Computed example of a mutant assay.
Amino acid sequence: MSINQVFQQDIIESLYEEHHAWLRAWINRRLGCPIGAADLAQDTFLNLLLKAELPVLHEPKAYLSRIAHGLLVDHIRRRDLERAYLDALAHIASNEASSPESRALMLELLIRLDMMLDGLSAKVRTAFLLAQLEGKSYQEIATHLGVSTRTVGAYVATAMLQCMALLQE
Rank of each mutant, 00 (worst) to 15 (best):
Glu59Leu: 01
Glu59Cys: 01
Pro60Ser: 02
Lys61Tyr: 00
Ala62Thr: 00
Tyr63Ala: 03
Leu64His: 00
Leu64Arg: 00
Ser65Gly: 01
Ser65Phe: 00
Arg66Leu: 04
Ile67Asp: 00
Ala68Gln: 05
Leu71Phe: 04
His75Tyr: 14
His75Pro: 03
Ile76Arg: 12
Asp80Pro: 02
Asp80Ile: 04
Leu81Cys: 12
Leu81Val: 11
Ala84Asn: 12
Leu86Pro: 05
Ala88Gly: 08
Leu89Asn: 05
Leu89Thr: 00
Ala90Thr: 05
Ala90Pro: 01
Ala93Pro: 01
Ser94His: 04
Glu96Gly: 14
Glu96Thr: 02
Glu96Met: 09
Ala97Asp: 00
Ser98Asp: 14
Ser99Asp: 10
Ser99Phe: 02
Pro100Tyr: 09
Pro100His: 13
Ser102Ile: 11
Ser102Pro: 02
Ala104Ile: 04
Leu105Lys: 06
Met106Pro: 01
Met106Glu: 15
Glu108Lys: 11
Glu108Trp: 05
Leu109Pro: 01
Arg112Trp: 02
Leu113Ile: 05
Leu113Phe: 09
Met116Gly: 04
Met116Pro: 04
Met116Glu: 08
Gly119Asp: 12
Gly119Ser: 15
Gly119Cys: 09
Leu120Thr: 02
Leu120Arg: 03
Ser121Ile: 03
Lys123Ile: 07
Val124Lys: 03
Arg125Pro: 02
Thr126His: 04
Leu129His: 02
Leu129Met: 10
Leu130Glu: 03
Leu130Met: 10
Leu130Cys: 05
Ala131Tyr: 06
Gln132Ser: 14
Leu133Tyr: 12
Gly135Pro: 08
Gly135Asp: 07
Lys136Trp: 08
Ser137Pro: 06
Tyr138Lys: 14
Gln139Arg: 14
Ile141Ser: 04
Ser148Arg: 07
Ser148Gln: 06
Thr149Leu: 01
Thr149Asp: 09
Thr149Val: 07
Arg150Met: 14
Arg150Gln: 15
Val152Lys: 01
Val152Glu: 03
Ala154Lys: 07
Tyr155Asn: 06
Val156Arg: 03
Ala157Ser: 13
Ala157Tyr: 05
Thr158Asp: 09
Ala159Ser: 07
Met160Pro: 00
Leu161Ser: 15
Gln162Cys: 12
Met164Val: 15
Met164Asn: 08
Leu167His: 03
Leu167Asp: 06
